[in-house]
Amino acid sequence: MQERTDHELLKLHQDGDAEAFGELFRRHKDRMWAVALRTARDPEIAADAVQDGFINAFRRAGSFRGDSAVTTWLHRIVVNACLDRLRRIKPTSDITDIDPADARDHHRSVEVRLDVREALDQLPEGQKMALVLVDMHGMSVTEAAQVLEVAEGTVKSRCARGRAAMAQLLEPA
């Protein structure tokens, strides 16, 4: 039996098929988890956002117009769920709270990741989200524009500005 496409599964879900959305979840939960974790940088928030996102997608399946990939639509919902959760909480810690001596005890790649996270946190939200989706999650500019609900040129501009700022922030002293 041929595997159904995401569009077909979403349509079956809209038509009342009890199993169709579960298959969409199984197919895309890991990718949605990855984007949520990169967006929130907190496993607990990411897990809650993925759950919120899939619940919202389940309930709002009728709002899917079909002019983008189902995964792009899911990304948009999960990213928005992350942003909603991040807006509702007060930061409890900051990446700058990490003792630099502790970071040096770890492998160089850990230090680089910490530096990148710290630099990323200093960017405006729009630039940060564009870079997370395009450079870290590997989305195309078109997909990122759909997720962020902005023009492709805006994503390109935000990425360019964000990369330039990151290069300056990560420049050795």
Rank of each mutant, 00 (worst) to 15 (best):
R85H: 00
D105F: 03
L169D: 13
F54D: 09
A61G: 05
K29I: 12
D52A: 07
D105A: 09
E118L: 11
G62Y: 08
A167W: 13
A144I: 13
R113L: 08
R87N: 06
G153D: 15
F25Q: 06
S93L: 03
G66L: 11
L170Q: 14
T71W: 03
D42L: 03
A69V: 02
V79Q: 06
H13F: 02
L170S: 03
I95G: 05
G66M: 07
R88N: 02
G62T: 10
K29G: 02
I98P: 03
E143P: 08
K11M: 09
K128L: 07
L24N: 10
R38A: 01
S63I: 03
A173R: 15
K156V: 01
A144K: 14
V112C: 02
S157F: 06
M32G: 05
H7A: 08
D102Y: 02
G16C: 10
T96D: 06
V79E: 03
K156S: 13
P91L: 00
D84E: 08
C82W: 01
T142L: 10
R59T: 07
T39E: 07
C82V: 01
P124I: 00
H28T: 14
F21S: 07
R158N: 15
V78L: 04
M1P: 07
D15V: 05
A69E: 07
A34H: 12
R38H: 10
F54V: 11
I89R: 13
E118W: 02
G138R: 12
Q168Y: 10
V79I: 09
T92D: 05
H106I: 02
A165L: 15
T72H: 04
G162R: 13
K11T: 12
D67M: 02
S109C: 07
A164G: 14
K128C: 08
A18C: 06
W73L: 04
M136I: 04
M139P: 05
A34N: 14
E149S: 14
H75Y: 11
S68K: 05
I55V: 14
L9K: 04
W33T: 11
A144M: 15
R88W: 00
V112M: 07
T96Y: 03
D135R: 15
C82H: 02
T154I: 12
A101V: 08
A46W: 13
F64W: 09
L74C: 06
A57R: 09
F64E: 09
K11G: 03
R60C: 05
A101S: 12
T96E: 05
R59W: 08
A47G: 14
S63Y: 01
A18M: 11
V134N: 10
S93N: 02
D121S: 08
E171Q: 15
Q2G: 12
H137I: 10
R76E: 08
D67C: 02
R161Y: 01
L86W: 00
A173T: 13
G126H: 11
L10Q: 10
D48W: 01
A36W: 10
D115H: 06
T5Q: 13
V150F: 00
R27Y: 00
T142C: 12
F21G: 10
Q14D: 10
V35E: 11
G153E: 15
V79H: 02
R88A: 01
R87Y: 00
V116D: 08
